[in-house]
Design a protein around this nucleic acid. Structure first.
Lengths: 148, 148
DNA sequence: GGAGTATTTGATAATGATTATCAATAGCAC
DNA sequence: GTGCTATTGATAATCATTATCAAATACTCC
């Protein structure tokens, strides 16, 4: 099913209303292949649609999360970021603590191990978040030179 | 080496000063086997030592992190939490999204896999954070009853 | 031990992100 | 179209973290 359809279905099933603002925010969000803050998304939305307010963007991106099309990520820089899941596999993040660059990583083995762990504790897994912090090759090189 | 010694050594090595406030905050923090916010830690500290301000607690807990004796955790509830590493192995978290309860989990296999992944991307690993969200056995049971 | 200097402290203000408020607007069911 | 209620947008409130700055204090050198 199409992402927009899925969202509209969710909105309907919750007894909420279909509005132009929600559609527009979703469109811009799906077209953005980045991990945006609400602030950034608001800026992007306003480039195309002047009148849409910050609060509406914030509320809508939360809704999109609830619909399952988006997830929050937190790189520890003080602002929540959002990434949509449309056309994306689940993945984790490898984040450079020096320059902020990151890689999206995925390992089936890792996923499997996690599920085993969760089962061991009798939990029912909903989601997870694995962030690995380190130095990217470039920054690692720079750091090595500095200490020389 | 003792945790307090390690901290004092760190403070000295950074050219910082050894103060009564830092020692007191560290003591209270090490005696707390919980994941505290700065607010909570400040409250705990004030029970024993009236005059210590919020800013000092916030600054000190950051210092403790830098010294390697503490790490930030973020359960997504809007406030950063801190847990000390004294007498604790590294571990990840399994967090119940219903009741907020959590387990500390650890798996050497998982750690090993991560290191392999990081190496694949030529990164130098500094730390990582794995949070798995789900339902604890109790909440899973309650939810199952609701749907019946 | 005492003076000089730079760090630290504590109260408070500033900042920044998120959430709440509320009158005006606009979907939706009839 | 009408009536009801959710939604919107501007703004204020909230909350955690960070910055500010004068006063207090730790450390160095004598």
């Amino acid at each position: 099913m199409d992402a927009k359809q899925k969202f509209e279905q969710f909105v309907a099933s919750e007894g909420l209303r279909r509005t132009g603002q929600r559609t527009k925010v979703l469109d811009v969000f799906l077209a953005t292949e980045r991990h945006v803050t609400v602030q950034e998304l608001h800026d992007l939305v306003r480039k195309k649609h002047k009148g849409i307010g910050y609060a509406t963007v914030a509320r809508t991106v939360k809704l999109i999360c609830e619909s399952g099309l988006c997830r929050q990520v937190d790189f520890g820089d003080g602002a929540l970021r959002y990434e949509h899941k449309y056309d994306h596999e689940h993945h984790d993040h490898l984040i450079c603590v020096e320059c902020g660059k990151f890689e999206e990583i995925y390992s089936p083995k890792l996923e499997k191990l996690q599920h085993e762990l969760v089962r061991k504790y009798d939990y029912v897994q909903k989601s997870h978040k694995l962030d690995i912090f380190g130095l990217c090759p470039e920054c690692a090189k720079k750091n090595a030179q500095k200490t020389t």
